Simulated assay, not measured.
Amino acid sequence: MDHTFPPLQLDPAILLEIIQVQTEIARCGLDLGQVINLVCQHSQQLARGCGAVVEIAEGSFMVYRAASGTAAGQLGMRIPLEGSLSGLCVTSNQSLVCHDALTDARVDKRACQAVGLRSMVVVPLSHGSQAVGVLKVIATEPGRFDARAIAILQLMSGVIAAAMYHASKYDIDQLYHQATHDAMTNLPNRAHYFDRLRSTLALAERQRHKVGILGVDMDGLKFINDTYGHRAGDAAIREIGQRLRQEVRQADLVARIGGDEFMVLLTDIGDQQQIEAKVEHLVQQACRSYHFEGNALPLSVSIGSAIYPDDGHHIETLTELADQAMYQRKKSRSKVAQD
């Protein structure tokens, strides 16, 4: 069966929305991670899917580097390049459609079940003449996509390709770095964090050791922005990221998740007492005095923690527990400040 489609004339309203996406992307500068996330979200809406994914080919795997809708919980998932529709899309450099994942021999059925999809459309993401990943939109029902969806995703993949070119004109390794790191802090981004978290938890399960997960939120960033300007606020975010990175081991990971939020992955932790001591140390180091352009900026963070497997086995559970603990600490600190 031929799963490709001839070119299609799109509705002007769709074209206008894609132009609006390009305008929004222009505000992202060279942060390829933000571009990928933005295109992913808009592609899902424009192609009328229930979820969307940007996968990057890394060695023998396709890695979920952006995910929206029903696929959002699978961010960081790895599927074998060989034996998957995404892998075939990369190796053939052609747009492909799966009308029913239950009967299509080209798909990775385990991955399809994990995401909960029955049909999908995938188009290649090209850097120069080389396909380096795919843009994919999925649906929970079979036969969801047609020539219209292919045409939309081909245009949206071109938007990502343009960002890839401007972010890294020649070096593919640099391109991967742009896609997996935050432009402001040069720390791993949200997608990289969840990729690493999945592999770290899988290793911890096999080797039977504990993993610490820390949720970090800056206190008072709005005050800094309002009082000293956004340049000072950006400098404060970079400083906090650098301080966190300096205070953990090389094997650990500090990632900027977005805005004033960070996550810290402690790859081998002893017990609750040890992780609490680490949290207090990080808070103390983050709160050290910092001057920017002659102004003393009040740096402070709230940190919550969760331990695998003591507090849970699933990424969603552990992340939620760390976030809840962090917000509880923030609430307590705010109450103390008011008293």
Rank of each mutant, 00 (worst) to 15 (best):
C89F: 03
Q34D: 13
V53Y: 00
R329H: 13
M184R: 05
M62E: 07
R148P: 07
S126D: 08
I79F: 10
F5P: 02
R106C: 06
A26Q: 14
S289F: 06
A296Q: 14
H313M: 11
A322G: 03
Q44C: 14
T185I: 04
F145D: 03
R208N: 14
H3W: 13
H3A: 11
E58A: 13
G83W: 06
E141G: 08
V301N: 08
V54S: 03
L265Y: 00
E239G: 10
Y193Q: 03
A306N: 02
L135N: 02
A139G: 05
L297K: 00
P188K: 01
K331D: 14
A13W: 03
L201Q: 05
A322R: 00
H99W: 11
V336Y: 08
V123A: 01
E247A: 15
L187H: 01
H166Y: 11
G294Y: 13
Q74D: 09
A232F: 07
K136W: 04
Q328W: 10
H127A: 11
E316Y: 08
V53W: 00
Q178E: 12
Y170W: 09
G29H: 07
S302F: 05
A139E: 04
L85S: 05
R27Y: 11
E24C: 09
A167H: 03
H230T: 13
Y170K: 11
T267C: 04
Q284C: 12
L10P: 10
S43K: 04
Y290N: 01
R190L: 06
